[in-house]
Computed example of a mutant assay.
Amino acid sequence: MNDPAGAVIGLDFDGTLSPIVPDPAAARIHPAAPEILARLSERVLCVVILTGRPPETVLSLGPGLAEVPGLVILGHYGFERWESGQLSAPPPPAGVPRAEAELPLLLRDLGLSGVVVEDKGRAVAVHTRRSPDPAKALETLRAPLRALAERNGLVVEPGRYVLELRPPGMDKGHALSLFLAERAARSAMFVGDDLGDLAAFEAVRVSGLPGVTVCSGSSEVSALAERADLVVDGPDGVITLLKELVSAVRR
C-alpha cells in the first residue's frame, strides 16, 4: 500500500469479521478483530464496517468495536450510520412491520419448519439455515417473499440461506461510493463474503481509485470469489490478511 493515509478499508460483518452461525443472534465478532482494526485505523484514512445489520447490533455482537479509533459503521446497507458514539438514521419505513406481520401466516401456508424470522428494525430477514433442507426452503420462499416485498414497497436482498426484505434506494455499492467521496479517499479495499457485497466490489472498481476486493471465502457463495481480486479462508483468513496489512503499512 503506497498511500495508506488515503486508504479506506471497508468490511462486511457477518461471514467476514464474524463467523456465520445457525442463529444470527448468537453471532460474535472474531476475537482478534477489534484489536487489529484499532491498529489498522491508526495507519489508514478510515476503517468502515458496511453491513445489513443495524449498527447497534454490530456493536453488541462486537465488544471492543466502539473503542476502535475513527471507526464508522454503516448499517442497514447505509441507511444508518454510527460514528463517534452517535447514531443517525431516517425514520423507519412503514412497509417493514407490515411485511413482518404477514410472515407467520405465509410460512404456515408454505408448510416450512425451522425457518427463522429476524427483526432488524429497518428490515426483516428470513433464514432457512436451520430448516431440514435449507436450499429447498430458500427456493420455496423466493417467489412468495418477492410478492410480499412488492406489496409493501420493499425489495428482497438474497444471501447465504437468507432472504431479507428491506427498503429500496440504498445498497452497499451506493453507500460505499458516497463514503469514498465524502472522505476524499485515494485508494480503497472492501472485504465481503456474500451476494450483497457484489455491489461494494463494483463500487471499488468504478471509483477510479487504486483498489482491491477481497472475498472471505466459503463453500456457499462462489459468485463473490469469482469477482474478487483475492480470496481468503473465511474470517480467520480476513484477520490474517489485516494483520499482514498492518505490518506492511508499518514497514
Rank of each mutant, 00 (worst) to 15 (best):
D3H: 14
P4I: 04
A7K: 10
I9E: 13
D12S: 06
D12R: 09
D12K: 07
D14S: 05
G15V: 08
L17G: 01
S18N: 07
P19K: 12
P22V: 06
P22S: 09
P22H: 07
A26D: 13
R28H: 02
I29T: 06
I29W: 02
H30M: 05
P31C: 02
P34G: 08
P34H: 00
V47C: 11
V48W: 00
T51W: 02
T51D: 05
P55L: 07
P55Q: 11
V58H: 09
P63S: 05
L65S: 01
L65Q: 00
L65N: 04
P69I: 10
P69A: 04
G70I: 08
V72T: 14
V72H: 01
I73V: 09
I73F: 00
E83C: 03
S84M: 12
G85R: 02
L87D: 01
L87T: 07
A94P: 04
G95Q: 09
V96T: 03
R98Q: 13
R98A: 11
A101D: 04
A101M: 05
E102A: 14
R108F: 07
D109N: 13
D109P: 02
L112N: 06
S113G: 10
A125P: 08
R129S: 11
A135V: 13
A135K: 15
L141T: 02
R146N: 15
L148T: 10
L148C: 10
A149N: 13
V155S: 13
V156S: 12
V162H: 12
V162F: 14
V162M: 01
V162R: 11
L176I: 05
F179W: 14
R183D: 06
R186H: 08
S187F: 05
M189Q: 09
F190H: 08
F190S: 09
V191P: 10
D194S: 11
G196D: 00
D197T: 14
D197M: 02
L198F: 00
A199H: 08
A200F: 03
V204P: 03
V206I: 12
V206L: 12
V212R: 14
V214H: 03
V214L: 07
G217R: 12
S218H: 09
S218T: 15
E220T: 09
V221K: 01
S222N: 03
S222Q: 05
A223K: 03
A225D: 00
A225E: 15
A228V: 07
V231A: 15
G234V: 10
P235A: 12
P235I: 10
D236R: 13
D236N: 14
G237R: 05
I239R: 12
T240A: 13
L241D: 00
K243R: 15
K243Y: 02
V246E: 12
V246R: 03
V249A: 14
R251K: 13
R251G: 15
